[in-house]
């Protein structure tokens, strides 16, 4: 995937992102790390088109993120599973496919089960989100994101609401998708996952990209900010 930030500034009350200019090419799995409030989730939301930037332009694979067509090429996994709570895991997927992607009932059903199987949820397909574990719900959310056949999957701290065991369960499931041909952009606090899964790391602080490079920057940070960050999280 390729992404370009041109004079990207984003503000709520004060600036959350400061005039970012940045180009990245030929990466398949990008991890964004940083302290809470560093702007990493905001950057992810803007890259995914969920939030339009207040100033500047952002292009992903040469398509503007504000283009409505762009949204149909991505998948997004939220912090909390964010499944529709009144629908079973299966229906959460089939509803999306039938209503927004024009699948027939049969096609949608098959596709849903294909993806639920992939995430080992076949036996949970007919349960409501409230009746499965947090890890299963998050995996179902991942299955839903995969079902629309996106080019890129965005993950916004997908395990922050889970305990360590469920975190491991979900991250293992994500790692298995590495060879699925999808690109990933994710925000997480689990640095071992960044190490294993990312082929590029972006470190942010105070709304700026402070350091970036392949995952080895985590072991040998060159900026003081990343050094301090690594010292604190280890």
């Amino acid at each position: 995937m390729k992404f370009q930030l041109k004079n990207l500034t984003h503000a709520y009350d004060l600036n959350v992102l400061h005039n970012l200019n940045y180009v990245l090419e030929d990466k398949h799995s990008i991890g964004i790390i940083g302290k809470s409030g560093s702007g990493k989730s905001t950057l992810l939301r803007i890259l995914s088109g969920l939030e339009p930037p207040t100033h500047g332009e952002v292009f992903v694979n040469d398509m503007s993120v504000t283009d409505p067509v762009y949204r149909r090429t991505i998948g997004f996994v939220f912090q909390s599973h964010n499944l529709f709570p009144h629908l079973t895991l299966e229906k959460n997927i089939t509803l999306v496919l039938e209503k927004t992607r024009g699948y027939t009932h049969e096609e949608a059903h098959n596709r849903a089960h294909e993806n639920l199987n992939l995430l080992q949820l076949d036996d949970q397909a007919h349960k409501l989100p409230k009746n499965v574990s947090g890890g299963q719900a998050q995996r179902a959310s991942l299955a839903r994101a995969l079902s629309v056949d996106p080019n890129i999957i965005f993950l916004d701290e997908p395990t922050s609401s889970l305990d360590p065991i469920l975190t491991h369960e979900v991250l293992t499931a994500i790692e298995k998708l590495k060879d699925s041909g999808k690109d990933f952009v994710f925000v997480t606090h689990v640095l071992s996952f960044v190490h294993d899964f990312a082929d590029y790391v972006i470190f942010m602080e105070d709304g700026r990209i402070v350091e970036h490079g392949d995952p080895s920057i985590l072991d040998t940070p060159s900026t003081k900010a990343l050094k301090d960050f690594m010292a604190k999280v280890h």
Binding site: L50, P68, R71, F76, N82, K99, T100, V148
Partner: peptide, 23 residues
Amino acid sequence: ITDEQYMAMDLFGFTSYQKYRYI
């Protein structure tokens, strides 16, 4: 119905009618 649910609906591209009718 949380803001995140509305975000998910927008993301998948549900029409207004579909949002109300199905979700």
